[in-house]
Nucleic acid binder design. Structure first.
Lengths: 344, 344
DNA sequence: CTGTTAGCGCGTTCAC
DNA sequence: GTGAACGCGCTAACAG
């Protein structure tokens, strides 16, 4: 491993000149720069990461804190992580994974104090989140993926649940649907402060009401069987039901199954639109689900960019970053029958 | 950020004593150790990571090289990554993500030369893999997840495809199935040197032949439609078909759909066993797929452990680590009809 | 535009 | 059992 001193000696310049040539912090004449570069390639020089961090007092790694398989790592998370890692790399940073449960906030701070990471990305943020509170108090650069209830001075990027719900309702309403139900995550997730459950509920209710439609929302466990039961419940509550928006992937499969079991056709009798959906899941249904898929990659990108700006400039008043889901047409949504025949 | 000197001053000892108390490299009296620990907690001391790496000449990070969304990050990969990150952390290491395509082998080496990572985990290894070749030549500690054709002196952990295929055939044969087909990944994946496609093909053929059964294998694109076509092809080729082993998740959904379209019941007429399957996918089918799911977490764990031993001891002759998939009963496999009625 | 030099915070070899 | 001192490889003043 060649050092900077080796390069300097070979190029017949001083060590610091090599450093400046490398960082561009100070002008270096074309001639000497050339000699330096020649020496560097000849020696296969690569600047030592640890020495650089130590001297410059800054780390070149970003940490991603995520809850270890609490809610399961789905495809959306994978897209997010991959995108974040790539964007970080494009900016000269490395992304490290810190699998910490929400209760391990202290350990996160310890690692930050070690100077291990220049900043922290916190995933799966709850409405009230100890990790975020401690990071905020410690003054460490961080960015939330998601939003706590309290937002003052806290940098974040999030999925635009409100917009997504509104887009979903709009899409179905434009196709003539009037009786549009919503199948959300479980009550328990809401009780645990899982923000998406709340935001989507609100967004859906607002979207429906605004259009003079009556919201019918149910919560549901994250299993096909729970989805079956929920579908039955919805049909009983509203026989005129012609469309269901779901934000619960496993349950969605149960909904489709239950409808088909009852002899109802998807999408001819009932349309299904799966929102905040992971990549690929649509393909696994028959017919393929029409989905609005979660912007995992874009969130990863925006999250890293936001964090980098916090690292660079402290916490200026940054514009909010809300990323909506995008529609992916499948085969589970069709125009509403008009007038819709009674079911029984 | 308190430094070791701060701690030493407060504890009225010399800096090096603090270092020894921390590392245990040298005995320290109980009394002074206590004073030191008190000082450390009082100051919230955390040893600086960069300084430590620089002085000790070793990094505390492991790198995970994976092909950026080439084949898509599924649930298995997520399990793997999460598990690897956790095990690394339990051993005092951090896991960083290096999204590099196979063609960027040079950049991987550059990062290693920077001392950024103490070792590298290479995922999705192809039969002939430039990344592995270069790492091997450079002498950098690494471990493959998967196997190249050449294995001499190359540390690896992998899924036991042969055993998994054999277990799958055994399981079905025990239930009376004689005409068991295999639906593999695409021809293209094989052409690109994707090892699982080869290994599973071989394993299946051996497992069948050994039992006096005739192997019937087809390759298939990674889509439900391709799966449909493949199912049709299989049924035409072998009308007595009573079971299908699949190693192609998206295609599996097409197989189920095609069978049902033809009025065949799953599993009464045809059993389906999805091997090397991601977590959760089984749930998305109706009835839920019987699967043998890929040991993502265990691979992550073994991969990190293997890498750590390479870092510590060079490359001793390590025992091979082959991890089989484990059966998860669903509703798509049943006892074969005997004698099975003709289809037409 | 270039060279000199003092640290960055910790590991580790020496003397005591 | 303890302390002093040097060095890891580089950054960033400070001189010139």
């Amino acid at each position: 491993m060649a050092t900077m001193q080796d390069v300097a000696t070979l190029a017949k310049v001083s060590l610091s000149t090599v450093s400046y040539a490398l960082s561009g912090t100070r002008p270096v004449s074309a001639a000497t720069r050339e000699r330096i570069e020649a020496a560097m390639t000849e020696l296969g020089f690569q600047p030592n990461a640890a020495a650089r961090s130590l001297a410059s007092r800054r780390s070149n790694v970003l940490a991603l804190v995520y809850p270890a398989v609490e809610r399961g790592l789905g495809g959306t998370v994978a897209e997010f992580v991959d995108s974040a890692a790539q964007v970080a790399r494009e900016h000269g940073y490395h992304l490290v994974l810190w699998p910490f449960r929400t209760s391990q906030a202290e350990e996160i701070l310890d690692l930050v104090r070690q100077g291990m990471a220049a900043g922290v990305l916190v995933m799966d943020v709850a409405l009230d989140d100890d990790r975020v509170r401690m990071l905020q108090e410690s003054g460490a650069p961080y960015t939330m993926i998601g939003r706590t209830r309290e937002l003052e001075g806290r940098p974040w990027v999030d999925i635009d649940f409100e917009r997504t719900a509104d887009d979903a309702v709009q899409y179905l309403a434009d196709l003539g649907h009037r009786h549009i139900a919503f199948l959300n995550h479980s009550e328990q997730s809401a009780a645990e402060g899982y923000a998406p459950t709340f935001r989507a509920d609100d967004g859906y209710a607002v979207a429906m009401t605004r259009r003079g439609l009556t919201p019918v929302a149910v919560h549901c466990g994250e299993t096909p069987n729970a989805g079956r039961a929920a579908a039955a419940e919805l049909l009983d509550a509203e026989p005129r039901l012609s469309a269901v928006i779901t934000m619960n992937e496993y349950a969605t499969f149960g909904v489709v199954a239950e409808l088909q079991r009852r002899g109802l056709s998807v999408p001819d009798d009932v349309s299904i639109l799966s929102i905040v959906s992971s990549p690929g899941v649509g393909e696994m249904s028959n017919p393929p689900l029409t989905t609005m898929h979660a912007p995992g990659a874009e969130l990863g990108r925006q999250g890293v960019l936001r964090l980098l700006s916090v690292i660079a400039d402290g916490t200026p008043d940054l514009p909010q970053v809300l990323v909506p889901c995008s529609l992916e047409e499948g085969g589970t949504v069709s125009r509403a029958r008009s007038p819709r025949p009674a079911l029984d």
